[in-house]
């Protein structure tokens, strides 16, 4: 028992590690919010673009979606951070993580939003036309609100799953929660900072998981 406390809840080390892990936690929060905002907006934009039913645009978007839905997040991050510099594109660890994960989320979101737009019954389009709505206004005011509702449970779950991937930022040396905890752990030869990191992750993600449960109950029927 004493051994567990010494190793996981060592007060001295927790106190010392706190500021740095907290700083890392802010990076995690910023990266997560950036990924959610950029990923969802891009995904929605891609889904709307597909409504143009232009072959070329469709082809490009579908390719993008298939690639980023299929590749593991970590492979995408490593490629963005270690591969792109050979093309003369060098991103900071933070930007590499945010852009990499946003690309993945936008691919999933685009697919879900598009499926939801298609799923809205045709009669809705016809009714809007009968009411003299132009196509773009129909999409914006009648179809999208219904589609977003349909998409919400799946999109929420996907956003949380991908946001948890910000911890993968350690692989590209982003100083987020896990990374800062790990570096203090190796300096102090004591894993207590990891407990702190775990605590911060739960602090951030438990409300999100609870929110996803609420969304599922509210919108799945």
């Amino acid at each position: 028992m004493q051994k567990i406390i010494d190793n996981y809840l060592n007060w001295e080390i927790l106190k010392e590690a706190f500021p740095e892990v907290l700083a890392g936690f802010w990076v995690t929060v910023q990266a997560s919010l950036a990924v959610i905002v950029i990923g969802l907006l891009t995904g929605l934009a891609l889904a709307v673009l597909r409504c143009l039913r232009n072959r070329v645009i469709d082809g490009v978007i579908t390719t993008f979606i298939e690639i980023f839905r299929t590749l593991p997040q970590l492979v995408v991050l490593i490629f963005v951070y270690f591969g792109l510099p050979y093309l003369g594109i060098t991103l900071s660890p933070f930007l590499a993580t945010v852009f990499g994960l946003s690309a993945v989320l936008s691919a999933f979101a685009a697919e879900i939003f598009w499926a939801s737009i298609v799923a809205v019954p045709k009669g809705q389009w016809e009714a809007a036309t009968a009411l003299a709505f132009k196509p773009w206004r129909t999409l914006a005011f009648i179809i999208l609100p219904q589609a977003v509702r349909l998409a919400l449970p799946l999109v929420t779950n996907r956003s949380i799953a991908i946001t948890k991937g910000t911890a993968l930022g350690v692989a590209v040396s982003m100083q987020e929660t896990l990374g800062s905890a790990q570096s203090i752990m190796s300096i102090k030869a004591n894993p207590s900072p990891l407990t702190l990191a775990a605590f911060f992750y739960l602090l951030f993600f438990i409300p999100l998981v609870a929110f996803s449960r609420y969304v599922e109950r509210r919108f799945s029927h």
């Binding site: 911890a167 896990l178 990891l194 775990a198 992750y201 739960l202 999100l208 449960r213």
Partner: peptide, 19 residues
């Protein structure tokens, strides 16, 4: 179940492997 769902798998792995 919610605790498990809220915990990033990489953090879990680091905890298991390094601690």
């Amino acid at each position: 179940i919610d605790l498990l769902r809220a915990f990033p798998v990489l953090v879990l792995l680091v905890l298991i492997y390094y601690s």
